[in-house]
């Protein structure tokens, strides 16, 4: 008995590893996905080691050296208070990336649970959850985020909640669709006939087997959330100055766009690069997990 379960555990492990290896191999053959992955890794390194990479402290003012164009000392110029823009961008990556990752993580945990419940139970549970999701989705995402941030006020956690709320819907839909796809397969019937509890079936069988589309969706929505976070900061909600958030930096430089365009240009390039990298990685993951589409 012990022996046989140990053997199944081993074979299962091998099988999982090989599946993972297949996906990884397919991913490594996709140059654009690799570029995306490298850029994401570089950005994460930049965020973690910000104090070592940034040449100046992000809040160090120098009122004798304000609004200077890019030069050897300040490669991206200085802002209206003489702060080094490159250093602020380096520190800003911390806010953008952590909001992106955390908002998507939390919204996916909630969305996946709701989606798994809706898909697994069907009937009334499905109707109630999905109609609610329909109603939330009738409000364009950024407008919902604006309404929530107006109520919660500025700040990191509040922005996280405002952006995460709207992202629940997509995770829920993707999860429900893939649960419906595996709903009547034999291994689920086997688990049910083994008298496994519903909780166990959902957490051990349903979620792992329908994870792929959710993972792709999550990677794509990290990019979206980062862009929306910048947009919230830009219109005066979300994370606010003096915090060096990229959207807030663009907002701060907006009035000076004629005389110092570099204050607006560089933070925007970094938002674009970050979002682009996550989208390239997401596209690559989608193709690697679903080779049917690529053929």
């Amino acid at each position: 008995m012990h022996n046989s379960s140990a053997i199944t555990a081993i074979t299962q492990k091998n099988k999982k590893q090989s599946q993972f290896a297949v996906v990884l191999r397919r991913l490594s053959k996709n140059p654009s996905a690799i570029i995306g992955l490298i850029v994401v890794c570089l950005l994460v390194i930049m965020a973690i080691f910000a104090p070592l990479i940034a040449p100046y402290p992000y809040d160090k003012q120098n009122l004798l050296n304000t609004r200077k164009p890019p030069s050897a000392e300040h490669i991206m110029g200085t802002d209206e208070l003489g702060r080094d823009i490159f250093s602020r961008i380096v520190y800003g990556s911390r806010y953008s990336l952590s909001i992106g990752f955390l908002a998507v993580l939390f919204s996916n945990i909630i969305g996946m649970t709701l989606g798994a419940l809706a898909g697994y139970f069907g009937g009334l549970v499905d109707d109630i959850i999905m109609r609610l999701i329909d109603i939330i989705q009738s409000i364009p995402g950024i407008l919902l985020a604006i309404a929530i941030s107006v109520v919660l006020g500025p700040g990191f956690i509040n922005t996280l909640i405002a952006l995460g709320f709207g992202a629940i819907t997509m995770a829920c839909r993707l999860m429900r669709a893939s649960v419906l796809g595996i709903r009547h397969q034999e291994f689920l019937e086997a688990a049910i006939s083994n008298n496994a509890s519903t909780f166990r079936i959902i957490t051990k069988h349903v979620i792992p087997n329908s994870f792929a589309p959710v993972l792709v969706g999550a990677t794509m929505s990290i990019g979206n959330v980062i862009m929306s976070a910048a947009m919230l900061s830009f219109i005066g909600l979300g994370i606010q100055p003096p915090t060096p958030e990229w959207g807030a930096m663009i907002s701060g430089g907006r009035a000076l766009i004629r005389s110092c365009p570099w204050m607006v240009t560089f933070p925007g390039i970094f938002i674009m690069l970050t979002v682009l990298a996550f989208n390239m990685l997401g596209d690559g993951l989608r193709d690697a997990l679903d080779p049917k589409l690529k053929k």
Binding site: S32, G223, M227, A230, M231, F234, G247, I250, R254, I257, R258, P261, V264, T265, P267, G268, I271, M272, V275, L276, N279, M280, D283
Partner: peptide, 22 residues
Amino acid sequence: ALFGISLPNFWIALMLILFFSV
């Protein structure tokens, strides 16, 4: 297309103003 979905619209708006207006 990949570039297009990665561009923040408020930033591209400011860049367009910078280039075509200023």
